[in-house]
Design a protein around this nucleic acid. Structure first.
Length: 552
RNA sequence: GGGCCCGUAGCUCAACUGGCAGAGCAGCAGACUCUUAAUCUGUUGGUUGAAGGUUCGAUUCCUUCCGGGCUCACCA
């Protein structure tokens, strides 16, 4: 601070505008140039200094409220003015000031506990002298405690008739506007605290997220599942096909990977006798960022012994309808222009059948295509599958087999249209290194994915528990990796060793919590349901300082 | 990474074909003892994201960079 005192700053700055017009830029005096934000911060600090001079504690450490505002609304919200006048309930509340309407000797404050708001009526002749001094120096955004009685105004608004005010904390910076709020998405993500203060809808999203996770725990705990926590720092990142983040442990001098999935550890636990386990926690994948992808995201994975993927699909329907009921109060939730219904049963599509059917329809209008109808059998043959993919304008990598091509065709033709919850089942073995083959069809595994809102929400399968077959699958992955596929799975000898001790028949599933919350809150971007989504670092200082250097 | 778009006061937004950077809210000063986006009067606040270039003159046109959004690719 270049000014001797902030009050001097605020008075001198009044002349700044005129001075700036009359003086050449080189004559500007550094100390008196102030942005509006700094000027307002100085004015707010000056009010705090005045309170300090009056003997008011600027940052007290506690305040004894008798009720929070949310509870106050619940308790008195239904009472009439006459009832309140008869009872004259005394309350002491605390909150942030989100509105000030002043009429000289009488004023209204809007006080918020973050969830609910209540109006406070402050009359000069109803509060003590110290409270009046405090009131005169309050700003939009300050925290204040209020003692008074509950009543209704002439316009029937539930209010508190203040008898005493206590200063609790200063808001030193100007808040976003009360009417338009904060709409700049960059600021909303980077400074989530501001978003939460001024946008009640944003808070409701995260309350819904908490209810979602609570409802899932309630559902699984009620069925005898045990919640566990497995390593997030792993010597080998397995259980999914994705590129990991690498970190380093100094004492052991080893590289570790942030987990891309908890899957292999949870199945080790099933080997160990935990027949029903689940984990809800973060996965980390070092890949692109989009409206559906954040580098760290929250996944539910659960495993149950002695069940297969058919059981999982039914259980998923029961779980999601339970969660939807807990979060939204019903089974239906708005999603853009649609209504997504989580009421069972969900539509089921066999992957190759659905891919072949959609490809046939699409190719019927492609003149260069003369092969006629595409069948699911065609998609099991690499050269025919490749011909279909190319005719559809899809790229085919040399290392991709028929199964991978069929999956590509399915995703290209169906994914975006699967708005209502839909199980896509019977995946090619090639794209499913941890799933169990169908007894009569080794090219196909007992696996499904649940789509809703146009994206994948869940992935489940009958777990491959044959250690010899698992080793062969890993070896196939190693060949892909050698061919340049950085996301191919690595060999995990200890996991195979665990399977050798005997994994019972087991069904396992992962559900993307962020995406589920997107659906339940009608949020078009995953960043809307993650409190602090990953953003390119930009400190407030850097934003106002010179931008030079930086990487390419 | 590719394509398209955006960045102006604390916030929400204007500024015609290149011609003195504006409004509302917030803030400050004043009036007002039941308002609720209170109202009324006056008023402060800007390196127009940054750096270059073209031009007599750039918020506007060009280049590069920074940050963000959508989208495609990759993935969940």
């Amino acid at each position: 601070m270049r000014c001797g005192s902030s009050t001097a700053c605020s008075t001198r700055s009044i002349a700044t505008g005129r001075l700036r017009r009359r003086l050449a830029p080189t004559q500007w005096i550094d100390g008196i140039l102030m942005s509006s934000e700094k000027e307002q911060a100085a004015q707010r600090q000056a009010k705090l200094d005045e309170l300090l001079a009056l003997g008011v504690a600027p940052y007290p450490s506690r305040f004894g409220r008798t009720i929070d505002i949310t509870a106050l609304i619940e308790r008195y919200g239904a009472q009439t003015g006459e009832e309140l006048e008869a009872e004259r309930p005394s309350v002491t509340v605390a909150g942030r000031i989100l509105g000030i309407r002043s009429f000289g000797k009488a004023s209204f404050l809007v006080l918020s506990d973050g969830r609910e708001r209540v109006q406070v009526y402050v009359r000069a002749d109803s509060v003590d002298a110290a409270s009046l001094e405090i009131f005169r120096r309050l700003d939009f955004g300050d925290h204040v405690g209020v003692e008074g009685r509950v009543f209704r105004t002439r316009t029937n608004e539930l209010s508190i008739w203040a008898s005493r005010l206590e200063f609790l904390a200063k808001c030193r910076l100007p808040l976003p506007e009360k009417w338009h709020g904060l709409t700049d998405v960059e600021v909303r993500y980077r400074q989530r605290y501001l978003d939460l203060i001024v946008n009640p809808a944003s808070r409701r999203v995260f309350e819904a997220r908490a209810r979602t996770v609570a409802a899932i725990r309630q559902f699984l705990n009620g069925r005898g599942f045990l919640e566990v926590e497995t390593p997030m720092m792993q010597p080998m990142a397995g259980g999914a096909l994705a590129r990991p983040f690498i970190t380093h442990h100094n004492a052991l001098d080893i590289d570790l990977y942030l987990r891309i999935a908890p899957e292999l550890y949870l199945k080790r636990l099933t080997v160990g006798g935990f027949e029903k386990v689940y984990e809800i926690n973060r996965n980390f994948r070092n890949e692109g960022i989009s409206t559906q992808h954040n580098p760290e995201f929250t996944m539910l994975e659960f495993y149950e012994a002695y069940v297969d993927y058919e059981h999982l699909m039914q259980m998923t329907e029961e779980m999601l309808s339970h969660v939807a009921a807990q979060v939204t109060g019903g089974s239906d939730t708005p999603w853009g222009d649609h209504i997504v219904s989580f009421a069972p049963p969900y539509r089921r599509l066999s992957l190759r059948d659905a891919a072949a059917e959609a490809a046939s329809q699409r190719l019927a209008s492609v003149p260069s295509w003369r092969e006629g109808t595409v069948t699911a059998t065609d998609l099991r043959d690499r050269s025919r599958a490749e011909a279909v993919a190319r005719a559809l304008g899809l790229e085919v990598e040399p290392g991709h087999g028929a199964g991978r091509i069929a999956t590509t065709i399915f995703e290209a033709l169906w994914e975006a249209d699967l708005v209502q919850p839909t199980f896509v089942y019977d995946f090619p073995t090639e794209v499913s290194p941890l799933s169990k083959q169908k007894a009569d069809d080794p090219d196909t595994v007992e696996r499904f994915e649940l789509y809703a809102g146009g994206f994948e929400v869940a992935n489940g399968f009958s777990e491959l528990n044959d250690p010899v077959e698992q080793r062969a699958r890993f070896e196939a992955q190693l060949r892909d990796r050698a061919a340049g596929d950085a996301e191919a799975h690595q060999m995990d000898e200890d996991y195979i060793r665990a399977l050798e001790y005997g994994l019972p028949p087991t069904g396992g599933e992962g559900i993307g919590i962020d995406r589920l919350v997107m659906l339940l809150t009608n949020s078009p971007s995953i960043r809307d349901v993650i409190l602090f989504p990953l953003m390119r670092p930009r400190t407030l200082e850097a934003a106002t300082a010179d931008d030079d250097g930086g990487d390419a």
